[in-house]
């Protein structure tokens, strides 16, 4: 215990601590304060107590938005994860085509969210968009501004377009790390394509796949910009997801108190999900290293 200790290096963390305090902790504290007060602006506040929280947990509007959000995330995961794995399995392994495909696949990931929304907003329009026009020419009644189902399909397809490449690229990286010897051994054992996938490729992809699922779930659960640009939450409220509803409440109606209570609950849900995923991931690592 006589080892010399010098803890002065901790002071080097101070700038970061200050930065975090101002960029994260203070804003969070103000949100907490908003959630317990009523305000009409002008720095005038009236104590509201638990009123906003009570309003929010019992509000049908919020329940509906939460339901839509969970449905959306579930659909997104159900499409993007299998599709991403499928694409990754079909990607060329090396050479010119591999590089070209990689670059082309990364394109949607590089486009700003706003622009992605605009692209699909135009692309789906019946009068000037290729998709809308072609569907109309085929006699399919498609109009994402009127029909809730069409709006949902557009938003889901847009998200698939935007993010499937991410899942595919992550899986591709996992696949590339499998030594060739594994495949040769499988060939000697006359393994079918399915058992190669099930017992060699899938276990090797498990780690990256979990990260992909986590990323896609979090992103889709917090999605705002793209559906907002395409449908604006409509028609009616049919594509109003949690964050769109939150923005409507906070900036549209200026209901800062309810919006703050809402965002705190949103925050807790996100924290819970991240914690669950983090725990599962670290435990997987632990089991693998054992």
């Amino acid at each position: 215990m006589d080892k010399t200790q010098n803890n002065k290096a901790w002071f080097l963390v101070l700038p970061v601590l200050l930065l975090v305090a101002f960029s994260a902790v203070l804003p969070l504290m103000t949100v907490v304060n908003y959630a317990f007060n009523d305000t009409f602006g002008n720095n005038e506040f009236f104590w509201a107590g638990l009123e906003w929280f009570e309003d929010m947990v019992t509000s049908d509007r919020l329940h509906d938005a939460l339901g839509r959000q969970i449905l959306f995330s579930a659909i997104i995961l159900a499409i993007q994860v299998p599709l991403g794995i499928f694409i990754a399995l079909n990607m060329p392994k090396k050479g010119f085509w591999a590089s070209l495909v990689l670059i082309l696949m990364a394109l949607p990931l590089l486009i700003p969210f706003n622009v992605v929304g605009t692209i699909w907003q135009i692309f789906g329009r019946v009068d000037i968009g290729l998709l809308g026009h072609s569907l109309a020419a085929m006699g399919i009644d498609y109009n994402y501004t009127n029909d809730p189902l069409d709006a949902w399909i557009t938003v889901v397809v847009m998200d698939v377009w935007h993010w499937t490449s991410l899942v595919a690229l992550l899986c591709y990286a996992g696949l590339q790390s499998i030594p060739q010897a594994y495949y040769q051994a499988a060939k000697i054992d006359q393994a079918t394509r399915w058992s190669v996938f099930r017992y060699i490729e899938l276990p090797k992809m498990k780690g990256v796949l979990l990260i992909a699922v986590l990323l896609r779930f979090m992103d889709s659960f917090m999605i705002y910009t793209e559906p907002f640009v395409v449908t604006g939450g409509g028609p009616g409220n049919s594509t109003t997801f949690l964050s769109i509803d939150l923005a409507k409440m906070a900036t549209g109606q200026f209901d800062l108190g309810p919006a703050a209570a809402f965002s705190l609950m949103y925050f807790c849900v996100i924290l819970l999900i991240s914690w669950v995923f983090y725990t599962v991931m670290t435990n997987l690592d632990r089991e693998e290293n054992r």
């Binding site: 103000t30 907490v32 304060n33 317990f36 007060n37 720095n43 005038e44 506040f45 104590w47």
Partner: peptide, 8 residues
């Protein structure tokens, strides 16, 4: 600024 109260 923000009218901080005792419970918060």
């Amino acid at each position: 600024w923000m009218a901080w109260t005792f419970p918060v």
